[in-house]
């Protein structure tokens, strides 16, 4: 059983949904970023999503675009992202780690070498935003061979004809993008999210995480009533950005401020439903 499967099984036992937190690797600098990732699990994150910075993140809004720019400016690379995961893995062998980003850095690294190095660093899954099922064979092959989950995205525009194609060969969980739009902009209403999750469940038995537009503990709780996990990214990244000085350096309270938000989100989710 993979870490992702074990974690979702444990959540089912507990009768609650999970919290997936997103932060960009190396934002605002490697030291601060490492301390953030190291604190997430204790603050209540059930799955850790780590953004791989990319110069041209076409599915992301301003907050995550700027996070990537900050990280790249400080010399973040895909290799260093993997090194950061390796370090994190030494301290925590249970929490699933999913890398999220765009295909070009992986393509440049070499899909096979990347899958191999990612697994050996302790990565459990990959979300590659610009790699739809039509194009992802070159990564699913190496990912499957190494035991890495390639997590597929479903969206409000994925209709009943398309969903079978998306869930076929998917593993880990399905990431439902709650809005037709980019990260950190609008929020979907809880009723439409619940409908969408019900519809997805007709096509797959995999756990369903919902992301995009979830900012507050209340919104996370609402999603937690319908889905298996709620993913929060932009609002955490914005909290981080609010704790930078004029030169873009971390102010002393940054890590605590972000982790306090994570604790509030985790509390929201834990209050949502009882098995």
């Amino acid at each position: 059983m993979s870490r992702i499967e074990r974690r979702f099984a444990a959540l089912r036992e507990e009768g609650r949904a999970g919290l997936v937190t997103y932060l960009t690797a190396g934002d605002p600098d490697r030291g601060t970023s490492s301390r953030l990732f190291a604190g997430l699990s204790a603050a209540g994150a059930d799955l850790i999503e780590i953004g791989m910075p990319f110069s041209d993140p076409m599915a992301d809004g301003a907050a995550i675009q700027q996070a990537g720019q900050r990280a790249l400016k400080r010399g973040m690379t895909l290799r260093r992202t993997l090194a950061m995961v390796r370090e994190l893995r030494c301290a925590d062998d249970a929490t699933p780690i999913v890398l999220m980003g765009y295909y070009n850095p992986i393509y440049r690294y070499g899909p096979e070498a990347f899958a191999r190095d990612a697994v050996s660093a302790g990565v459990d899954g990959l979300i590659v935003v610009d790699l739809p099922p039509e194009e992802d064979a070159e990564l699913t092959g190496p990912a499957r061979a190494t035991g890495l989950d390639l997590i597929r995205l479903a969206t409000p525009t994925s209709d009943d004809q398309r969903l079978p194609r998306i869930v076929e060969g998917a593993s880990g969980f399905i990431y439902y993008v709650a809005i037709a739009g980019i990260t950190g902009t609008r929020s979907a209403d809880p009723a439409s999210i619940a409908n969408a999750v019900d519809r997805l469940r007709r096509f797959t038995r995999l756990p369903i995480a919902v992301g995009f537009g979830i900012r507050t503990p209340e919104q996370a709780a609402a999603v937690a009533r319908a889905a298996d996990a709620a993913a929060v990214g932009s609002s955490l990244v914005q909290r981080l950005a609010l704790n930078l000085d004029a030169q873009g350096r971390a102010k002393p309270g940054l890590v605590d401020a972000v982790l306090a938000d994570v604790r509030a989100l985790a509390a929201g989710i834990r209050s949502a439903r009882v098995g």
Partner: peptide, 8 residues
Amino acid sequence: FVAETLMP
């Protein structure tokens, strides 16, 4: 190579 939202 586009996001799933755009594929349809």
